[in-house]
């Protein structure tokens, strides 16, 4: 599904990712763990195609295509979804309108027909329930005045609605209390499937108790310095980043 090879990325002239390689197959859930400043968010943004993240060398292949050559909205239409660490507020645009606009834009880009307002409403309602998202919340402006938990739940709702092939979850656990974390994790687990790959980016092991990964990668200094199974997350939790980094050096 996703093949990253020798990826070097710079932000305002400063190299952040320094030769990152990673491969994820369909049906797999991979976790990327790393301390602050290791390049986690840079990785998620470069996969989604944010401006200002310059690829110096290396390649990103997504389903055999060159991902870097695609515009952000093209990636989205082709099934790349990034659940953001800080979902953005857009005043005056109701959540429901946004969901409909985005869903139909993706469908159109794939040559599919629009779903009318009623159809979208039905679809959203069905998925919103499990995530404890109320009708009232859908009527409010996108993310405006939402609590941290509400914002993250809305990200997962979008993931459920768009049914991406590759979902990247950037620090989805940050700012969540344990109950909210459980709701979000259940939502994510419900979307695990043999056709879908997931990349879970996190600082803490906590989230990985709920979303159990197939592989864990430790990111430090812009490179993967250690890889392993789900037990690596526990090892990290026990030893701390400093020791793992020392061992890897």
């Amino acid at each position: 599904m996703l093949e990253i090879e020798g990826l070097h990325v710079a932000v305002s002239g400063k190299e952040i990712l320094k030769g990152l390689s990673l491969s994820i197959a369909a049906g797999e859930v991979h976790a990327i763990m790393g301390p602050n400043g290791s390049g986690k968010s840079t990785l998620s943004y470069v996969l989604a195609g944010r401006e200002g993240y310059e690829i110096i060398s290396g390649s990103i292949r997504y389903r055999g295509e060159d991902l870097a050559a695609m515009a952000p909205e093209e990636r989205a239409a082709k099934g790349v979804f990034l659940a953001m660490q800080y979902p953005v507020e857009i005043p005056g645009v109701t959540t429901m309108n946004f969901l409909k606009t985005a869903l139909n834009a993706q469908r159109r880009a794939r040559g599919e027909k629009d779903i009318d307002a009623l159809g979208v409403l039905r679809l959203v309602r069905e998925k919103a329930k499990a995530l404890h998202i109320s009708e009232e919340m859908l009527k409010r402006a996108l993310n405006v005045g939402f609590s941290g938990g509400e914002k993250k739940r809305l990200e997962i709702l979008q993931m459920a609605l768009f049914e991406p092939a590759l979902a990247i979850l950037d620090e989805t656990d940050s700012g969540l209390d344990i109950d909210a974390l459980k709701v979000v994790a259940d939502g994510v687990n419900g979307l695990r499937s043999s056709e879908r790959a997931m990349l879970v980016i996190t600082h803490y092991q906590r989230l990985l108790n709920h979303i159990v990964p197939d592989r864990v990668h430790v990111l430090y200094g812009g490179r993967i310095i250690k890889e392993g199974g789900k037990e690596l997350a526990h090892e990290l939790e026990a030893k701390g980043y400093a020791e793992i980094i020392r061992e890897a050096a």
Partner: peptide
Amino acid sequence: EDQLFYCLQRGIP
């Protein structure tokens, strides 16, 4: 810019 990127990421041209 962050609002624009958020929309693009969700597939809106």
